[in-house]
């Protein structure tokens, strides 16, 4: 067992993990933050996307020990208290989710995408940037619409 320390959603946390423990397992089982999901075994579906030191990564493909000392943000930490993050609000407003299982990963990827493109996103770019996130319910139509709306909103207020 190895002791790890990290900041998760603004709070210092520590835990004892086996070296083989994946970051997503530590988040879900160790910290009981179950908004981050696991939808595949091959690092493709993106249901597990979180931000580590400001970068969107797949938490199913990183060991918890690798994230020792980092700053992690999960879906539970994205809103500012009761105020939804603009991406969260846009997903609700534009019906960007149905069963909700891929949604946390989608939202974390979207927030990262908008940041990297400084809010300047068009439909083709959004679709290409979603390569690592699979949704089975929405046909992506309203996810794309949600991300576009959030990007427009965020660049307006920036």
């Amino acid at each position: 067992m190895t002791t790890i320390n990290m900041t998760v959603n603004g709070k210092a946390v520590s835990g004892e993990v086996e070296d083989r423990t994946l970051l997503v397992e530590f988040i879900r089982e160790g910290l009981r933050l179950t908004g981050t999901h696991v939808g595949c075994d091959t690092s493709q579906c993106g249901a597990c996307v979180v931000h580590v030191d400001g970068k969107a990564i797949k938490s199913c493909t990183m060991l918890a020990v690798q994230a020792d000392g980092t700053n992690v943000v999960t879906i539970e930490g994205l809103a500012n208290g009761a105020d939804l993050h603009p991406v969260q609000a846009a997903f609700k407003e534009n019906h960007g989710l149905q069963c909700g299982f891929c949604t946390p990963g989608m939202i974390m990827s979207a927030a990262d995408m908008i940041e990297r493109y400084d809010g300047k996103l068009d439909e083709a770019t959004i679709r290409a940037e979603l390569e690592g996130n699979i949704c089975r319910c929405t046909g992506y139509h309203n996810i794309v619409k949600s991300i576009q709306a959030a990007a427009d909103e965020m660049s307006k207020s920036a």
Binding site: T34, T74, F91, K92, H95, L97, G100, T103, P104
Partner: peptide, 21 residues
């Protein structure tokens, strides 16, 4: 009408079977 159930899903508070211990 936008969905009543969305809030728990967009904030990571959905409760799926594997979330339960």
């Amino acid at each position: 009408v936008t969905r009543k159930e969305d809030k728990r899903f967009i904030t990571g508070h959905g409760r799926y079977t594997d979330d339960i211990v």
